[in-house]
Nucleic acid binder design. Structure first.
Lengths: 336, 336
DNA sequence: TTGAAAGCGTTACCAG
DNA sequence: CTGGTAACGCTTTCAA
C-alpha cells in the first residue's frame, strides 16, 4: 500500500508531527533528526498526499484552465504557456475544452470546485456569465485570458478592438472596398471586439459594411468557415477581401476561395487572426494579427498566483498590443 | 465558507450519513427524505468535496496525461480526444508536457502520484524507463498511447513500423532512390520504429541508406527540421526525397527546400507523419501517414478506465493501422 | 430506515 | 525542540 507519514515516522522512530515539520520546513528540529527523517523519506520513496494536505485547508496547487478547444492551435499554444509558468511556480493544470457550450462550461466549473482547484484561468466565452459569477466569484480566484470578463476578475488580453482595426487598415491600404467578415458565435467577446474595431475603421473610411457580409460560424471552425466563405464568394457582388476572426476560419476561407477557382491573393485577399503556426504554413502564408501567446500565458498565471498567495486586492487588467503580420494572403486590389 | 455535508445535514434535519447516502445513491432512504435532502443540497449549492471523498479511499476521478508537447498539433488532437472520452466517463484530465525530458517527466510523475490520479496515459518517450517503472508500476495503472511501452502496461498505438514502410513504398513507387530521413531524438520509440520500417522496405528494394542521411532533431521540431534538411540539401549528392517522422519536421523541411530555391515536389518530395491539421494546409499540401487520433484517445481512456474499474487483469495491446494520405508534396522523380 | 463513530493522511496548536 | 491530538469533509460499518 501507499506509504504514509506514519510509516515514515515509525521507521524513523519519531512522531508524525516531526515528519510533517520537515516536509514543510517549518518548526524547529535538530539537524540530525531532520537528516534522518529525510533519509527515511527518500528510502521509502514517500510521496506526501496532496489530498490529505488539502483537506486540512492547504492549497491543492492545482489550477484549472478552461478553453474552447485544446486542439485549436491557438489555445494549444496558450495552454503550453500557461502550463510552463504554472509548473514553474509549482502548480499543475487541469484542462477543459468547453466548445463554448454552456453546459460543458458549467459542468467543468462545478468539477473544478469539487476538486478544489486553487484558481482558474478562463479563456472561453460563456453565454451565461451569471453561471460563472454565481459559481465562482465568492470562492475561487479567476483570471480571464484572451477574453473579456464582465466580472471583477483579473484579465490578460490583447486589444481586440485595435486588432480588428489593424486588419481593416491593412485592407484599406490595399484599396479593398468590398469586404466580408467571418466571425465566431456572438458569445465570443474577442470576436465581437475584433468586428467592432474593424467596422469602426472601415466606416471612418466612408465604406459600408452590410450585415449579410458578416457571417457567424459554429464550432467546427475550418468547415464552417469554408461554407460561409463559399456562400459569400458565390454572391453576385463578391467581396475582394475576407477578414476572419481567427486563423482556423481563415483556413476554411482559403479552401473556399480555391474551390471557387479563385486565387489568393490575386482575386481575393484573406486575413486571419492569432498568428498560430498554421499561418506560417498555409498556401499562401497567411497575413494575420498576432497575439503574444507566450507572454499572455505567463502573465495570466503570474496574476493568478499572486492572488492565490494573497498578494493582491484590486482587479488588474493587462492589455497587450496585437501585431499585424503581413505574409502573402493579402494583396492590393487592382481591378475594381 | 464552503458548504459541507454537515451544513446540508443540519439544514435538512438529518444525519450526515443520510446525506452521504443520497449523494452516492446507496443504502435505503425513504423517497421523502431523499427528496428533501436533494432539495437542500440544491438550495445550498452544495458541492461534495472530491478531496475528502478521495481520502476515504475512493477515487479522485482524475487521470494524468503525459505528452511531449501539448502545443504540437498531433498531441493537442490526442489530448482533445482523451479529454472528451475522459469527461464522458466522469474523469478530469491533468496535462503535462515533458519535452521528452527525463527530469520533467519524473517531476510530473511524482506530482501525479501526490495528487492521487487514478491512472495515467503516457504519450511521451522517456530515456530512463526505470523511473516510470519504479514510480508507477506498483501503484497507478498506466496506459501508453502512441508510443511503445517496455513495461507491462496497456498500449494503444499504431503500427509505426508499417507506417515507415508505407512511406518508403510510396517513395519507391515514385522512383526515388536517394532519400534522407528526419527523425526525433533516439528516445522516441515511435520514430525509431518508423525509421526501422522505412529502412526495411528500402533495403529490400536493394537501395542503400547511409547513416549520415538520417538526421535526429531536437525539441524545436520545425526549426531543427529546417536546419537538418538544409544541411542535407546542401550536400553534393542531394536527396530527391525527405521522409520526416512527423508533420512538424516536414514543415521545417518544406521551408528548407524553398530556402534552397528548390521546389516541392518537382525537385524534392517531402513526406510527413501524423496527418495533423498542418498537413492539410501547407504549401503544397503534405503527403503524410495518418494516425487515427480520435480513436486512439478514446481507446486509451476506455482501456484505462476498464482497469481502474477493476475489470481487467492482463495487459492489452491495441495496434491500429496507419494510413497513407497522398497529397501534393510527393511526386515522381523524373531526372535521375 | 437512520444515526453514531471510526477512520483516511496531514496540519497546527499546545503541552511537555 | 518534540510529541499528542484535535480538526478537515466524507464514507462506511454497526447498532439501534
Amino acid at each position: 500500500m501507499k506509504v504514509t507519514i506514519y510509516d515514515v515516522a515509525r521507521e524513523a522512530g519519531v512522531s508524525i508531527a516531526a515528519v510533517s515539520q520537515v516536509i514543510n520546513g517549518k518548526g524547529k528540529i535538530s539537524e540530525e533528526r531532520r537528516n534522518e527523517i529525510m533519509e527515511v523519506m527518500a528510502r521509502l520513496n514517500y510521496q506526501p498526499s496532496v489530498i490529505a494536505s488539502a483537506l486540512t485547508g492547504k492549497k491543492t496547487y492545482t489550477i484549472g484552465l478552461l478553453v474552447p478547444d485544446i486542439s485549436n492551435p491557438f489555445f494549444a499554444e496558450i495552454a503550453r504557456a500557461v502550463e510552463d509558468q504554472s509548473h514553474h511556480l509549482g502548480y499543475s493544470l487541469f484542462i477543459c475544452s468547453t466548445d463554448n457550450k454552456k453546459e460543458r462550461a458549467e459542468r467543468y466549473l462545478a468539477l473544478m470546485q469539487q476538486k478544489r482547484v486553487d484558481g482558474m484561468i478562463i479563456g472561453t466565452g460563456m453565454a451565461d456569465e451569471s453561471a460563472l459569477a454565481h459559481l465562482m466569484k465568492r470562492s475561487v480566484p479567476v483570471v480571464a485570458i484572451a477574453r473579456e470578463a464582465n466580472l471583477g476578475t483579473n484579465t490578460v488580453i490583447i486589444d481586440d478592438y485595435i486588432g480588428g482595426g489593424m486588419a481593416a487598415s491593412h485592407l484599406l491600404e490595399r484599396n479593398h472596398t468590398r469586404v466580408a467578415l467571418l466571425t465566431e458565435s456572438d458569445e465570443v467577446s474577442s470576436s465581437r471586439e475584433r468586428i467592432r474595431g474593424f467596422r469602426e475603421v472601415w466606416s471612418q473610411a466612408g465604406l459600408a459594411l452590410e450585415d449579410n457580409m458578416i457571417r457567424a460560424c459554429g464550432n467546427d471552425l475550418v468547415r464552417d468557415g469554408k461554407i460561409q466563405a463559399g456562400e459569400l464568394l458565390r454572391q453576385p457582388d463578391c467581396p475582394s477581401a475576407l477578414f476572419c476572426c481567427n486563423d482556423l476560419l481563415a483556413i476554411g476561407a482559403l479552401q473556399a476561395v480555391k474551390e471557387q477557382g479563385l486565387r489568393v491573393p490575386q482575386d481575393v485577399s484573406v486575413i486571419g487572426f492569432d498568428n498560430t503556426i498554421l499561418a506560417e504554413v498555409t498556401d499562401p502564408p497567411l497575413t494575420t494579427i498576432a497575439q503574444p501567446t507566450e507572454m499572455m500565458g505567463k502573465l495570466a498565471v503570474d496574476s493568478l498566483v499572486r492572488r492565490l498567495e494573497g498578494e493582491q486586492t484590486e482587479d488588474e487588467r493587462v492589455v497587450l498590443r496585437p501585431e499585424l503580420v503581413i505574409r502573402q494572403s493579402t494583396a492590393g486590389k487592382t481591378n475594381p
